[in-house]
Amino acid sequence: MTYSENWMSLTPTTPVGSAFDESALVAKAKAGDAQAFSDLVNHYERKIYRLAKHITQNDEDAEDVLQETFLKAYEHLENFQGNSKFYTWIVRIAVNESLMKLRKRKSDRTVPLDEPVDTGEEMVAREIAVWEDNPEQRYGRDEMQEILNSAVQSLKPDFRTVFILRDIEELSTEETAETLGISIPAVKSRLLRARLALREKLTRQFKRKGEDVFAYL
């Protein structure tokens, strides 16, 4: 396990290659073991940062969310009951922090939140074309990342957040509904719209040139 050299007073406790035991670390952290908490942060910081960047679409906000998430988690650790996974709990904190950032920006009117994009709301698929083979290999890692980020960014925040939680962070429908405080049918509906909208956008990017649907048949 890698460790931040900026926290000189602490050293990794989980040897490289050993299993990550979330519940054991949480129990130790709740008992006051700061080292155990640091191991939890080490394990999840990248995922939380990715989540925050996806939802806020802003580097500065993502950094704030990253910090606030782990600071709040540490502060309220004794309130964590263990009914859900620790990861689900911190995702919930991170989502709430991210949505607060979005709301604040919306009220500041500094960043447009609702871009004029297609969101699949009409359930009409306009781009129907086969993709070129292995687009992941055709594009460089950074370029691919840019394409995927740009597509996610074009979704309305409501759809974007559901897609990120369900299809990237792999929360269940029930966990997503609970995290966002919306109904299960709302999660399903937003997820469908988000998936269809992203499919349209990526198809425009990845479609095989000069061929049509019958390339499959």
Partner: peptide, 11 residues
């Protein structure tokens, strides 16, 4: 097919 591929590239 393209929806499945969309999910795959994000995962």
């Amino acid at each position: 097919d393209t929806t499945q591929k969309t999910l795959q590239v994000y995962k």
